Amino acid sequence: MSSLEKDSLEKDSLKKELGQEKEGEGGGAAVRVRSLTRSFDGRAVIDDLQLDVPAGEFVALLGRSGCGKSTLLRVLAGLDREIEGEVLVPRRKAVAFQAPRLMPWKRVWRNVLLGLPGRPGRAVAERALKEVGLGHRIDAWPKTLSGGEAQRASLARALVREPDLLLLDEPFGALDALTRITAQQLVAELWQRRGCAVLLVTHDVEEALLLADRVLVMDGGVIAHQVRVDRDRPRDIADPLLAELRTELLDRLGVKAPEPAAVHKVA
């Protein structure tokens, strides 16, 4: 059997697994996608994709640039409706993007309330901002926030919607290394506290392994591979299991994992 035939059989097997994982459990899935196709200028970026995300699960989505990760997230968020297939998501959902997208002419607390139905008061924003560690910046102007603070404000804006599904599109991509670690820890804490389902789109394999219950690899317009991360949190990227999964995921992404540094013994 050729390698192409093996890859085809593996994708078919995975498609069946993903498609049947939550069958018969009624409302147990936060996301249910069947035969999703999204084309641009006649080219299918997403091609007959199947996906289930159970309620409360943290899922990370990896893939090469241009594979359709962000397109899938936009479809789930309801921002792209030019699709074929079935997409079922909770009514209460929220999105945080890589760019915080704060309105510079509104104070932070007013940015948090943007788009909320009704006339929510300042106290609603205050609670969300305190939850993300930004209670001391409630009245600040967005231009005075650091990159990490602006991203926290973006998360607060998502949390005030009390989402059953939180969609994160590379929210840490523009942060420096130390701020990124802090932001990752914050998201992990918020997810454990809130219990909502999370779909995180990222290019960072280590980030996916540290945060997610399940890591998916998107390729050829479908979910082509997945791994489960059976480790308690907080996690250590030096854990042998995580190191093994990292190598496996990098291989699926077409990246050769670096060889471990040689150890020289001194006589």
Rank of each mutant, 00 (worst) to 15 (best):
E126T: 04
P104R: 14
E131Y: 00
K106D: 11
R127T: 13
G118M: 02
P104Q: 14
V132P: 10
D139E: 15
A140L: 09
R119Y: 03
T144E: 15
W105G: 03
E131A: 15
N111H: 09
K143G: 09
R107P: 07
M103K: 05
G115W: 10
E126L: 05
L113W: 00
M103P: 00
L113G: 04
W105Q: 07
W141S: 12
R119D: 13
E131P: 00
L145E: 03
N111S: 10
G118F: 01
R137H: 11
H136W: 08
L145F: 13
G121D: 15
R137N: 05
K130I: 00
A123N: 12
M103W: 13
G147V: 07
H136F: 08
G115N: 06
R110H: 11
V124H: 12
R127W: 13
A128N: 08
S146D: 11
R110N: 08
R119W: 07
W141N: 06
V108C: 10
L116H: 02
P104H: 14
R107W: 11
R107S: 12
T144H: 13
L134V: 02
K143R: 15
L116D: 06
P142A: 10
R107M: 13
P120Y: 06
R127V: 15
G121A: 10
G133K: 05
L116N: 02
A125Q: 04
L134Y: 05
G135R: 02
K130L: 04
L116F: 00
A125L: 02
T144Y: 08
G147H: 08
A140R: 02
H136M: 08
K143Q: 15
L145V: 11
N111T: 11
R110Q: 15
V108P: 01
V124C: 12
V108S: 06
A125G: 10
P117E: 12
R107A: 14
L113V: 03
M103H: 13
H136Q: 14
P120T: 07
L134S: 05
V132H: 01
G115E: 12
T144W: 07
L116C: 08
G121E: 15
P104L: 14
M103N: 11
L129F: 00
K130S: 10
V108F: 05
V108Y: 00
K106N: 10
A125F: 00
L114I: 09
G147M: 04
R122A: 10
W141T: 06
W105M: 00
G135W: 02
R122F: 02
L114C: 07
M103Y: 14
T144N: 14
G118I: 01
L145Y: 11
M103A: 14
T144Q: 13
G135K: 01
V112R: 03
G118R: 02
G121M: 09
G118E: 05
H136K: 01
G147E: 09
W141F: 13
G121L: 06
W109I: 07
P120D: 01
K130Q: 12
D139R: 05
R137D: 04
L114F: 12
R110W: 09
W109R: 06
L114S: 07
A140N: 04
P120G: 03
E126Y: 04
R122H: 08
H136N: 13
T144G: 10
E126D: 12
K130V: 01
A140M: 09
R110M: 11
R122V: 09
H136V: 06
